[in-house]
Write a protein that binds this DNA or RNA. Sequence first.
DNA 1: CGCACGCTTGAGTGTCCTCAATTCGAGTGG
DNA 2: CCACTCGAATTGAGGACACTCAAGCGTGCG
Lengths: 267, 267
Amino acid sequence: MLTPTQPRPITPSSGSTEHTTVSPPTRGTRQSPPPRAATRTAARCSSCSMRLLCMPQGLSADELSKLETLICSARSVQRGEALYRSGDRFDSIYAVRSGSMKTVMIHRDGREQVTGLRLAGEALGLDGISADVHACSAVALEDSTVCIIPYSPLKLLCREISSMQDRMHKLLGAQIVSEAAQMMVLGSLSADERVAAFLLDVSQRNAQRGYSWSEFNLRMTREDMGSYLGMTLETVSRTLSRFQKRGLIDTQGKHIRIVDLEGLRQV
Amino acid sequence: MLTPTQPRPITPSSGSTEHTTVSPPTRGTRQSPPPRAATRTAARCSSCSMRLLCMPQGLSADELSKLETLICSARSVQRGEALYRSGDRFDSIYAVRSGSMKTVMIHRDGREQVTGLRLAGEALGLDGISADVHACSAVALEDSTVCIIPYSPLKLLCREISSMQDRMHKLLGAQIVSEAAQMMVLGSLSADERVAAFLLDVSQRNAQRGYSWSEFNLRMTREDMGSYLGMTLETVSRTLSRFQKRGLIDTQGKHIRIVDLEGLRQV
DNA sequence: CGCACGCTTGAGTGTCCTCAATTCGAGTGG
DNA sequence: CCACTCGAATTGAGGACACTCAAGCGTGCG
């Protein structure tokens, strides 16, 4: 496969706030000198992490209060800013509260691969568990906020409450499965099929979270999509145009409307 | 990129014991009617799962004995036979004790993608945790034996012993990272680079387990390698031949010797 | 308003796929 | 023991799909 954790050429946590090579910093993006960690009320935050961690199982009132003892602060991340970088020490996982983020892995020669897209409500940061150091970088695709769930207290909680343990395992397991699915996309599908699969995936995840399956804003650039799907931005653009001519979708820029769901499913 | 394999009608779990299309059953492979679960002594098995689950941390004698209460049987799997299939109910994870296995994911149109290679000592079956049902199939590349670690008792143990919990999390996290790395291989590297990365990965994993980094038998067929690397078997074969002419490796069939490690690293 | 960035579209090229023939090797049966 | 058979691997020739390079357009932001 590859030497998994390559010598990181990416300045892991240089004093400067520049997010250098992770994503070419948008000129318009204001370079907020201190990546300000805006702390919010614990109440809102634990409700955020609860959705992430406890959704399926019901918890007793007692257990709920224990959950709320998780020091669960929030942080806002500006568009283009990195929540964490490959090589950063791992100590928390995150739940996207608003906005969206991408995860990026960097090859030693500088090529970068988008390895994931995280929408509001989804988990982030699990790539740090195995080595106590993050393997990917997480970059905001738009101004976003995340919930910070410190890992050590979370582990304790998982030992106390079995449904939390279950939830944690399923969270990790779900990422394993979705990455395997993406390997299938990259390894076996044609360009058209990849784009269709991606649109259907985002549509389905939107639906799951109570938003429209048929209409959404994809904050990634064509280049990000291309990187995620293993193709060039030009091919992504051409494919979307062709889909539009075929009456499958309706796009203008980052806004996408799915017109013919069944058609998309049939490649 | 490609539309590689022909429509493969795979029967996920037909009543028959045939391992039909997962990997065309070698004629010679005897069709053992009951996929026999050869149970071994618990002692050998827990030592097997211990390597997998406890390697980094030391455990107290007391904790060790608890670990051994894990009902940990073994099973042998013939070449071409499936240890589990996509859709099977999940109730155990496995540790490869001897031999090697591949994990395979099947697209609805029948195309199949090799999503992983597991050598002796490595973990298997984590793809079932998220949905209580396996997302991949696991097929033996040669006659192999695996250690069966029932999941429910394992969960209990993780709640009792924090180092087991750590180990479990790291096992899951490591698969997340290695799959992300494979996404980078599939999404960003050329054919030559993919093959080189794969050889280096296997070499490194062999070294890690105390075997030779420079010489090994890859039990996958060229087709399996191609599927795993997102290319055709012909391209794999051509690439290996070219590497040999360049003096990077020495191959005959499935036996591979790495001649110029540094050269391989430089693509 | 103007610049810069992102997106679209076109033309030409190259990498890798497809199809096909042959060789090699292992397991089987005569 | 050797010929036979079948699958796996190698190698070649030709073609297709996606990439590269390049120009033009839209738009959001300073």
